[in-house]
């Protein structure tokens, strides 16, 4: 039964409808229209856009590419972020300075940093190849070969977002109880065994949260690809977000890009839910 106090929820509910539900429902409606560069408006064409999505090999290839890109970047971010967090967790000289320094990349704007990285990796004029040439290496085709461009995107993503992983994992380490470590020390466990038997299991819930958050973010990668490689060479670094951007805002295929976006959203929700369940089962030993 509605009571006066329930009406206090109204502003929040209205905000939710305005900023989440309405755009989502509108996008669903647009995806069933032929809204295009010539045909504006919400006519109804049935599931034609979705049929096109399933036949669009470029979209599915970009999804596969995103899977490997996300897996590699997030894994590297987790490993490096964990290592850095462990390094500054214990008392060390200058630890506070390092904690701040490690966070700097995360605080920079991705677009600006991508421009800077693009300049650094410029094969003719950038310092990366200049430095490597001093050691007799190169020139490395950072952005003009498929493998080079993929690696470049990985480098920039890892550089930019490892600090985020570091921050979450460091916060987790700081909050760990001391008793298990005392018990491990009494039992004579060394640092490696203590890590695998105590730290890693205790950190599992936090690790899963950090991994999922980063996977969600990585699945939306757009600005780095846009600035660094424009999805090239060929389609070697084209991700779904960038492809949807091309179809929607460059080609102005509004209806089709809405169908692509919703398909992508559903796939991401399903995939990330499965990944979260699997991580919980293998790292924590139970379902979430």
């Amino acid at each position: 039964m509605l009571k006066p106090k329930h009406f206090f929820l109204l502003p929040a509910l209205l905000t939710l409808v305005a900023i989440i539900l309405f755009p989502l429902i509108f996008t669903v409606r647009v995806s069933f229209s032929s809204w295009d560069v010539y045909q504006a408006g919400l006519d109804y064409i049935g599931g034609r856009n979705y049929t096109r999505v399933f036949e669009d090999t470029r979209f599915w290839e970009s999804l596969l590419r995103l899977s490997s890109l996300s897996f590699i970047t997030v894994t590297l971010q987790y490993v490096i972020g964990f290592a850095l967090a462990l390094a500054v967790w214990k008392q060390m000289k200058g630890g506070r300075i390092f904690r701040v320094l490690f966070l700097v990349p995360m605080m920079t704007t991705p677009v600006v940093m991508s421009v800077i990285w693009r300049t650094m990796l410029h094969e003719s004029l950038g310092p990366a190849n200049d430095i490597l040439s001093a050691f007799g290496i190169g020139p490395v085709p950072w952005l003009s070969s498929a493998a080079g461009a993929f690696v470049s995107v990985v480098i920039v993503e890892v550089w930019q977002w490892t600090p985020f992983m570091f921050l979450l994992l460091f916060a987790g380490l700081v909050s760990l109880p001391r008793e298990p470590y005392l018990a491990a020390a009494i039992d004579g466990a060394g640092p490696v065994r203590t890590f695998w038997q105590v730290t890693f299991p205790l950190m599992a819930p936090i690790s899963i949260g950090a991994l999922i958050i980063r996977l969600i973010e990585a699945s939306k990668i757009m600005d780095t690809v846009y600035i660094l490689t424009s999805g090239g060479p060929g389609t070697a670094t084209e991700t779904p977000s960038y492809y949807i951007y091309i179809r929607g805002l460059r080609d102005f295929q509004v209806g089709y890009s809405a169908a692509l976006s919703l398909t992508y959203l559903v796939l991401m929700i399903i995939t990330l839910t499965i990944i979260a369940k699997l991580l919980m089962r293998f790292l924590v030993g139970k379902d979430a």
Partner: peptide, 10 residues
């Protein structure tokens, strides 16, 4: 492309 400067395809 073989006559492009390094990175010329980008």
């Amino acid at each position: 492309q073989k006559s492009f400067p390094p990175g010329g395809t980008n």
